[in-house]
Simulated scan of single mutants.
Amino acid sequence: MTEVIDGEAVAADVRAGVADCVDTLADAGVTPGLATVLMSDDPASETYVSMKQRDCEEVGIEGIHVDVDADASAATLFETIDELNGRDDVHGVLVQLPVPAHVDRREVLRRIDPEKDVDGFHPENVGRLVAGDARYKPCTPHGVQKLLAAYDVETDGADAVVIGRSDIVGKPMANLLVQKGPGGNATTTVCHSHTSDLESKLADADIVVAAAGIPEFVDGSMITSGATVIDVGINRVDADTDRGYELVGDVAYDSVADVAGAITPVPGGVGPMTRAMLLYNTVKAAGRQHDVDVDLP
């Protein structure tokens, strides 16, 4: 019987632990604050930001939101980031990606104070992650790590395959799995669009993390019996529904569920964990900046 990994339930546990840490910070006179910056007219980006602000409110984190006109100059965005970097009540700064084409995305990430970079994308924080001394782990890969731990999926000595090499998921996920220590020690292979014979790479995988951004790219014929399959993808495809579309992952769920030992659904798997780990990082940042020990879950 394939086990369905319930991301909503694990995320709820993380949020409860984060709320306890917010209380600890309150006892020390600190209210953690997360600033979100949106420079886009994209409805999906607006929705993501509003969800993050709502999550903050639910656990007691102060949400600060700034809209920057999508047609404004890059300098305007950078000035906004600089101002938030300097605010004592802001412990985490998140610029919702993507930004407009006339703004250098990498410069945006470099502009955020590394101590307030709760996405974990600043080059300094990426370097610390690779070196095994992470300040803040990127939210989605860290969320996957938490899911594996919650369901007692053994990474130590396991063969893991990460499909995708993005800066946001693929690369940091592989780094977390290969690190020494809990949640790591896996023999990790990274596959991508130039990988030949993907099926052979997956044939012996105990853990598969699919983050290719291609709808239902991985099917049951590619997965070994009993493997744990984590589907990071979320893709909108045309469907005969009231909305005219449905959300599917990078994994053909029914096909893979027939052979996998455990699998995450889409939605309800990795997505809730990404948002929960953002709260986790924000509280961690507040504790670091005010020298308050918080017992994060």
Rank of each mutant, 00 (worst) to 15 (best):
D67Q: 13
V229F: 09
S40D: 13
N125Q: 13
Y280Q: 06
V90A: 09
R110S: 10
D206W: 04
I263C: 01
S166G: 15
G170V: 03
A9E: 15
E115T: 13
V153L: 06
V266F: 02
P267I: 04
D167V: 12
H65W: 09
D291N: 15
A158K: 03
D152W: 06
V229P: 05
R110M: 14
D206I: 10
Q145E: 15
D82M: 06
N185T: 11
L278Y: 04
A35F: 04
V49L: 05
L34W: 04
P215N: 12
P32W: 02
E246L: 07
V37H: 01
K180W: 07
E107A: 14
D67G: 11
G17I: 11
C56I: 09
D71H: 07
P43F: 11
S255C: 12
S196Y: 11
G220S: 07
D250L: 11
V259Q: 05
V259A: 11
V208K: 00
V229E: 13
E107V: 06
R135M: 08
H290M: 06
M51G: 00
H194I: 00
A160Q: 04
I223S: 06
P215T: 10
I263Y: 00
I230W: 05
E8R: 11
A203C: 06
R87W: 07
L247I: 12
Q145H: 14
T140S: 07
T241D: 11
S196T: 15
L109R: 06
D291M: 10
D231A: 07
D167W: 08
D293S: 13
E199Y: 00
S40E: 12
D291Y: 09
L279P: 01
V59S: 02
H122T: 13
D104S: 13
A72C: 09
M273S: 09
E8K: 13
E154N: 12
L198D: 13
G271I: 04
D41I: 08
L38I: 15
E3V: 15
N185P: 01
D23G: 05
T80I: 05
G220P: 03
E199S: 15
V126D: 08
G269T: 08
I5Y: 10
Y245C: 09
I223V: 15
V93C: 07
G271A: 14
A74P: 02
G249Y: 01
D291W: 09
